[in-house]
Amino acid sequence: MTLEVTLGEPARATTVPPDLRTHLTDPSTRAALMIRQSVLTAVRRLLDAEGFVEIQAPIIGPVTDPGVRGAKQMDVDFYGHRYKLMTSAILYKQATLLAFDKIYYIAPNVRMEPLETFGTDRHLVEFHQIDVEMAGASRDDVTALCERLVVAATREVLQHRPAQLGVTGRDLDALRRLGQEPFGRMTHAAAVAELAGMSQQADAHAEIDWSNEEMLSLEAPRPFFLTDYPKGSRGFYDRESRSDPGTLRNFDLIAAEGFGELCSGGERESDYRRIMSRIRETGENPAKYGWYLELAREGLHPSAGFGLGLERLVRYIAGLDAVWQASAYPKLAGVRSA
């Protein structure tokens, strides 16, 4: 693999992927991929038991999720029209609730991440999400489900992949404690204040940046939900609070031990008029969201859901240094690879 770019500052990544043969024959890759399989087994078992219908996610469409920090969408020539590879299938998830009340995808996503993500140890250009959506659900409903999923996946791996956890060198005590206490909660505003207390700069109107998020993650005794992000930090589909305008009814799940964000989700805007205003607030051109806006005008179900990063969850459970180690064919920003 060739690093094509000069980043202008030392890359912080602890490791970079080797060539594909070395990667695929590395015992720790094999262990990570088997842990990944167990995670998927546990996720599917739990969601199926709770009445969710698994749908195969779309791969291309005229539009995709625009709410992705700094990343470029990848264009596809669709018979002379510009289509996109899915950065996430959020808009399709909302649409699919017209068929079923509870759905999920194990969805492949592609994001041309900015080069600065190369050194975060937790960004991949090609990755998968456990993408869940529930009609009529609240944020509390889906954070509870997300927590059940993470705990179930962890227990599955502890039970069936102890040897592989040995290979990846996971601290098993920390894993075994997971689920003994409920995950924590912290609002975005409280996180900004806590960071200020640690003499870190954090913008009250923006995402928590990656280094600050890692710091919060290192401080946390257990995973926690970071809630109520400011409006200017997320896509138009996250629902704005009616009682606290300017904040969103959304969340990220932040793992402990410095592993950082695993999941983003929230309640969704479903009202056509509000969606249209929010589209403008996020600088989007409504014209390209034709099919989605038509559905919204005729009525979408209120819903909530999330996208739980599969490789990030595997990295966390397996205790890997970098998220690419949880992928068979890792692709990092700016790196040409198999």
């Binding site: 923006a206 995402e207 400011p230 930090s233 403008r280 996020t282 600088g283």
Partner: peptide
């Protein structure tokens, strides 16, 4: 020309800062 009101302008700027922090 694009449709703007105060809130749309405010949020678009915040999103630019959020998405392109450098």
């Amino acid at each position: 020309p694009g449709t703007f009101d105060e809130e749309i302008l405010r949020q678009q700027i915040r999103l630019m800062r959020n998405n392109f922090p450098r």
